[in-house]
Structures are given as C-alpha cells and as structure tokens.
Simulated assay, not measured.
Amino acid sequence: MRAKPETTPRVVLVTGASRFLGGYLVTRLTQNPAIERVIAVDTVSPSKDMTRRMGRAEFVRADIRNPLVGKVLRNADVDTVVHASILQKAPKSGSRAAMKDMNVIGAMQLFALCQKAPAVRKVILRSASVVYGCSARDPAKFTEEMSARRDPPGGFARDSLEIEGYLRGMGRRRPDISVGILRLAPLIGTQLTATVGHYVTAPFVPTIVGRNARLQLLHVEDALAALERATLGDVTGTYNIAADGVVMMSQAIRRAGRVEVPMPLALFRNVGRSLVGSSMRLYTDELLEYFRFGCGLDTTRMRTEMGFEPRWTTLQALDDFVRATQTRRIVESEWIDRAENVLTSILGGTATTGGADVMTLARPGRNAVQR
C-alpha cells in the first residue's frame, strides 16, 4: 500500500536548521510555493551561505528546551514540525551529560509543546539506523519491527531510541497528530565529515582482521528527498531509509583506490588514528562499530507505504563521493586486477607469469597514481 497523496503543509517548523540536513531541507521547502511559511530554529545562526539559500525562511535563534519555541508554534499556527537537531556526539565545550540533556530532554520538551499546540497535525523525526546497533549476530537485514541484538555502545544510539519512544508516546496522547520516524542509513556526501566516505578514502584504511563489514549507505541527496517526501506527504510510522544493495568494506576501499591495513581489534583505535589522522577521534562509537560489522536495512516499507525510491544505489553513492572529492588513488585498480589474476594462477598451480608480468606487478609505474 502506497502513501496517500501529498497533503502540502501550510506552516512548517524545522529544528537543527543551521546544520546540513536541517538547513538544506529548509531550502527545499522554501522553494515550494504551496507552503506559506517556513520557520527555521537552531541554537546558532546559520552561515551566510546557508542564510542566502534559505531565502524567505524565518530564522528563530532558540533552544528547543526554551518556552519560546512553544510561543512560535502557537502564534504562527505551525501544522508540521520536523525535528532534525539530534547531536551525534557531545559538544566541544560539553560532556555526555550535556549531549543527553540537549537530545533527550530537548526532544521531550519539544514534543510536549507540540502536544499542547492545537494547530500541529504532523511531527517528523530524523532518526538513524544506529538504533539497531552492530554485532556479529545481526540478521542480513533489519526490519522496522526488529531491535538491536545487543545494547548499542554509543550515546547517539541510546538517545535516538529514547527520542523515538517519547515521540510515539506523544502520538498516543494526540492521535490526531501524524507521527513519522525516518531511520536513515549512514550518509555519504562531500559536505559531511567523519563519515564512511571520508574513512574509506584515507590514504591507508585500518580494518579489523577477520571482518569485512557490509556497508549500506544513503546519498545525502536521497536523505533530503526522503525528509521532504515525509514532510509533504501523509507519512505515518517508522521507516528504514537506505539505498539499494551493499558494498563490502574491502570493496569500498578498493574502489576508492586506497590501501587496506588489517589489524587486531585492540590496535584499531590507536594505530588506526596514526593511519587516518586526527579525524579518527571524530568518529562516534556507533560509526566505529559500523566499520567493524556493518548493518543491512530492509527498505520494503519505504517503497510500498512511503512511496519513496532512492536515486542512488549504495555503490553509486560511493562512486559519486569518490568522483566528487577527486580522490587521489594510491593503488591503480587495473594493477590490483592483474595481481589477483596472477595470484589466482599461482594458487591454482597453472601460473606461467613470466619475467615481464612479475616485473609489472612489482613495479606498477607512474600510472599507479592518478586522479
């Protein structure tokens, strides 16, 4: 069953508007003439470039824990709220307690304000697939009804689970409000840092011996399109949002032309930091677990009920990122193919490589490094 036809909202409020997803969602919504007002909310002002992109949007600098948000909801007769301001890691000047307070307490108070606002008819939550965790006991694909096989290690995942629970509770108390939860797969895009894309394009990529994670990603453009679809359409319930197909970690590293460096788990963080650089510290616990195990999502409901089709597959999203960043290859893919063919012949006992072939493998030449 597909989602009902689009019911364009009249006044939309978006939280987290100074960040990538929230800001660009506001930009898309302001370009829709059927929407009368778009109100952007965040604790910090957006950049000049983002402000220009937002166009006619009205920016309100406020914390969602501030009662001012409630006044905005009532005075502007907001009918649709998109909550996209969940922090993935603790702020630089704060702690894990501060992160939990901003995420969980902030969401609780925002949903309470939505419950009291008579005009609100829809609340969309930007959640994440981290709620499923990552472990060796995971199924091939998680459906929306499944839960993590073990407690997620990071604060972002635990906060996301709590926030989802509070939103469902508000939906039960106000059944006239449509509640939609989008669990986004890990994003890949040139505008994002400390993501899968930047990890697999490090010059030398640390991996864990005996593991080859299954990566199912989501192009940032598809993430924005899914949020816009949920905002405009009659979307109720929980949805996995991910691209088609998976890419193994080793395959992703190879397509980026980088060098995989397997190591024991005990050395992964410390030695990996020396290989990847200071950005290794920016990866959340959830993302490091994803590099170890990966995670697959069942997107049947996304297609049949939400009526959303991602434009990019996982493989296409990865290749688009590599092209956009003009990643400088360390190893030429054709050279790897030749090496694999020769090694296969040797292991099969039928190798007659000859001196020229061996020299070609040992000395790939100048073409081994290219844009």
Rank of each mutant, 00 (worst) to 15 (best):
L218Y: 04
N240Q: 12
N240K: 08
A226Y: 07
A252V: 07
A252N: 05
S250I: 02
V235R: 07
T236A: 12
G237Y: 13
L267E: 11
V246T: 15
E221M: 00
G233M: 08
L232R: 13
L267W: 13
A242T: 07
D234T: 15
A266T: 11
V247W: 02
P262W: 04
D234K: 14
T231L: 07
F268H: 11
L265K: 14
A243Y: 04
M263Y: 08
D222A: 07
R229Y: 10
H219Q: 02
D244Q: 12
M249V: 06
L227Y: 11
M249D: 06
Q251T: 15
I253L: 02
R255V: 00
V259D: 02
V261T: 05
A225L: 07
L265V: 12
P262S: 03
G245L: 09
E221P: 00
L218K: 02
L265H: 15
Q251L: 06
T238H: 04
A225W: 08
V259R: 09
V235H: 13
P264E: 06
E260A: 15
I241A: 06
P262M: 01
R258G: 04
T236F: 12
V246M: 14
Y239I: 09
A243P: 01
A225S: 15
G233K: 10
A243F: 07
E228G: 00
G233A: 15
V259T: 10
R255K: 10
N240V: 09
M248A: 13
E228S: 01
A266N: 02
N270V: 00
S250W: 06
V261L: 09
E260D: 11
D222E: 09
F268P: 00
R229G: 01
L218T: 05
S250C: 05
M248K: 14
G257H: 01
N270A: 00
P264Y: 11
T231Q: 08
G237I: 12
I241M: 08
L218P: 01
L224Q: 03
V247M: 12
G245V: 08
P262K: 03
R229N: 11
G233H: 14
E260W: 02
T236G: 09
V220T: 12
E221N: 06
N240H: 15
L224N: 02
M263T: 02
A242G: 09
A256I: 01
V235N: 09
E228H: 09
G233D: 08
M263P: 01
V247P: 01
N240R: 08
R254Y: 11
A225N: 14
E260G: 06
V235S: 10
A266H: 10
P264I: 04
A225Q: 12
A223N: 03
D234A: 15
R258V: 03
A242R: 04
